[in-house]
Amino acid sequence: MGTVDLQHVSRWYGNVVAVNDVTMTLGPGVTGLLGPNGAGKTTLLHMMSGFLAPSKGTLTVDGAPSWRNPDVYRTLGLVSEREAVHGFLTGKEFVVASARLFRLANPEEAARRALAMVEMEPAQDRRIDTYSKGMRQRIRVAAALVHDPGVLLLDEPFNGMDPRQRFHMMDLLHKMGDDGRTVLFSSHILEEVEQVSGTVQVMVAGRLAASGDFRTIRRLMTNRPHVFSIRSSDDRRLAVALIGQASVAGVDVDATGLQVRASDYGTFTRALPRIALKEGVRVRQLLPADESLESVFSYLVGA
């Protein structure tokens, strides 16, 4: 139950290839789909959701294709990235309406259960228009869960959430994963998914770049090489002290300050304050020089 299977799936728009020959099988548990913006995550999710036809390859949910097959939604719950909802409905009306559209035997009861799961009962009688972003996201999750689907797909569910809401959502996803559901969520912010254990699929430029255990990928992430520019009260003194560190691969000194190439992001950032304190140097500025997601992802791809 709850298996999403992709075999050599590609999708192109004219000459642009959005998804390039992706093969993966998702089973019960939580899986994170990571990648920078424009990597093809949403296109891939749209194809899994039956909102887009693969240009090539086969894509099935529990053995049935999702394209042109509305019956697939009996086993599929979707939370799309666009947070469009019928804002004139109250949260409860919205979830009950979903339950009715799924033709559930007892829509009221199913809605009550789904609302309890996302802890939205206190606000269930307010209009969705009045909800905060996190509340909207939760009510959409409730509507996607109301028919107890085996597979839940969420596109950027943590977008715009504060840390507490994010934690709560993560907790919810894990509970569903532990229940034996197949949960897939996408994210372009690596730090967002830090609490996730489970598997990760990394997409870069339309291709499946890496997949595997999140802990391995997180270790690669924290230990990745990095360039920092530092300004301090005594650049030269700091440079001497830093070059003695194993986590530092090289130091350049120029008029604007120091350029430090750290071979290990985590160890270096922990070591720097200690060294500065010991040397009596005041650090005025510490800037990560290449902190773009693309560089992080391409490092992961190379590893």
Binding site: S49, G50, F51, P70, D71, V72, Y73, R74, L76, L78, S80, R82, A84, V85, H86, S98, L101, F102, R103, A143, A144
Partner: peptide, 12 residues
């Protein structure tokens, strides 16, 4: 406005 997805994502 994209709300159509709520109706399309049902087995109807």
């Amino acid at each position: 406005d994209g709300t159509i997805t709520h109706i399309l994502s049902k087995p109807l």
